[in-house]
Simulated assay, not measured.
Amino acid sequence: MLDALTLDQLRMFVAVAEAGSFRLAAARLGRAQSAVSHSVANLEMELGTPLFDRNSHRPVLTVEGRALLEDSRSLLLRADLLRAKARGMGSGLEIELTVMADTLFPVSIIGEALGRLHAAFPSVSVELRSGTLGQPAHALLGGTADIAITVGEDLRDSRLEFEALTPVSLTSVVGATHPLASRAKEARVSAVDLADFVQVVLVDPSGRTQGTDFGVLSQRRWRVGSQAEKLELIRAGVGWGRLPEWLIAGDFKEGRLVPLPAAALGKDGRTVNWSYIAHRLDKPLLPAAAFLRSALQEIAASEKTPSRVGKD
């Protein structure tokens, strides 16, 4: 009966298949060769099918053996993850970690940090969300995120602890076909010039910034919910707006975007804001969250502040 299958049998089957012999598999597992042979034979009996052809010098997987090998590996992996998760529960390790990141923050840094986290804590599941303006802080305070990445100084809260990561540079830009593009190449752009055209701005679903405008100079506004949507509308010539330089470096090289040297939006239309990693003061970070914080800080510290795009 299949109920009599054991993980030990499956582990020996996979070891023999990978090593190419019962002797090498036994050495790899630290078991007697006879024990390995006996265990695989019992597995074949339980399954009712031969897994190896033993008529040659070395055991060769049968058609059935090849078909069942990946399933066996999958079962062993799941069992190992189950053990790791159970050990983690006993040691205070999170089962799942929810991260909310500001859409202004470089995705490459987050990806590298989460890669390190997965290597260190493979049993921890991660849910990565992105949000604009007040959403990351709102998620922390609402208990729907364990750790957050924010950008800027305007959304502080005394209930949260913030630690600096890296500067994030924003540049005012417009699509190459927009009327402002030719004007920007000839002279500086004034606030009056900008007010005549549509400005593409982000909305804050959290409501934490309701009634507050960040760098909004035009009464003609199109509102979007992400940096990606904002970029696409600006590329299409709908209007102008500010975007993170890490996101638009390729657009400058390809000539799809033109910088707007508008003094009303920072020197030459450029501003630099610090990013922060944040968590609730009343909820100390557990092992995986603490590891992710350290990884983000280390990677951010090694990143060079982006040079001014479009002017190299």
Rank of each mutant, 00 (worst) to 15 (best):
E153D: 15
A187H: 09
P284Y: 09
M12T: 01
K185W: 03
E161S: 12
V203T: 14
N55A: 10
Q227I: 15
F13A: 14
K253S: 12
G88E: 12
D268G: 05
L141K: 08
V40K: 09
R188W: 12
E64C: 01
H178F: 08
L233S: 00
E70M: 10
E186P: 00
E70T: 11
T171D: 07
L141W: 03
V192I: 08
I147N: 05
K267G: 06
R235G: 04
E303D: 07
R58H: 14
S39C: 08
P167F: 14
D282R: 15
T150I: 00
W240Y: 13
L160V: 05
G20T: 11
V99T: 05
L82M: 13
M1N: 08
P306K: 04
L180I: 05
L265H: 04
G90E: 06
A249K: 05
H279S: 10
K267R: 10
T177Y: 06
D268Q: 13
L296P: 05
R54V: 04
D71Y: 08
G255H: 02
R66W: 06
T6D: 09
I234A: 00
L257P: 07
S275E: 08
A32M: 06
L155P: 00
A289R: 08
D312G: 15
T166Y: 01
E163L: 12
L82H: 14
A15T: 15
F121H: 15
Q9T: 02
A195N: 07
L43I: 05
A278Y: 09
A139I: 07
R31D: 04
S125K: 15
L257N: 05
R188E: 15
A148V: 02
S172F: 05
V124D: 08
T212W: 05
K283N: 10
M12A: 10
V201F: 00
K267F: 10
V126H: 02
S182V: 07
P179W: 08
I234Q: 00
S130K: 05
L281F: 04
K185F: 06
G250W: 07
A26K: 08
R73H: 12
V126Y: 01
G142W: 00
K304F: 07
T209N: 09
M100L: 12
L285S: 09
A249Q: 14
L257I: 03
R308T: 14
L194W: 03
D146S: 01
V238R: 11
A4N: 13
L194Q: 02
L292Y: 07
R11L: 14
L231E: 09
A67Y: 04
G239I: 03
A228P: 00
T212K: 11
G250P: 00
A278H: 06
E46I: 13
D312K: 11
R31K: 15
A176V: 13
P259E: 02
V36A: 10
G152H: 04
P205I: 11
P306C: 12
V124C: 09
N55T: 15
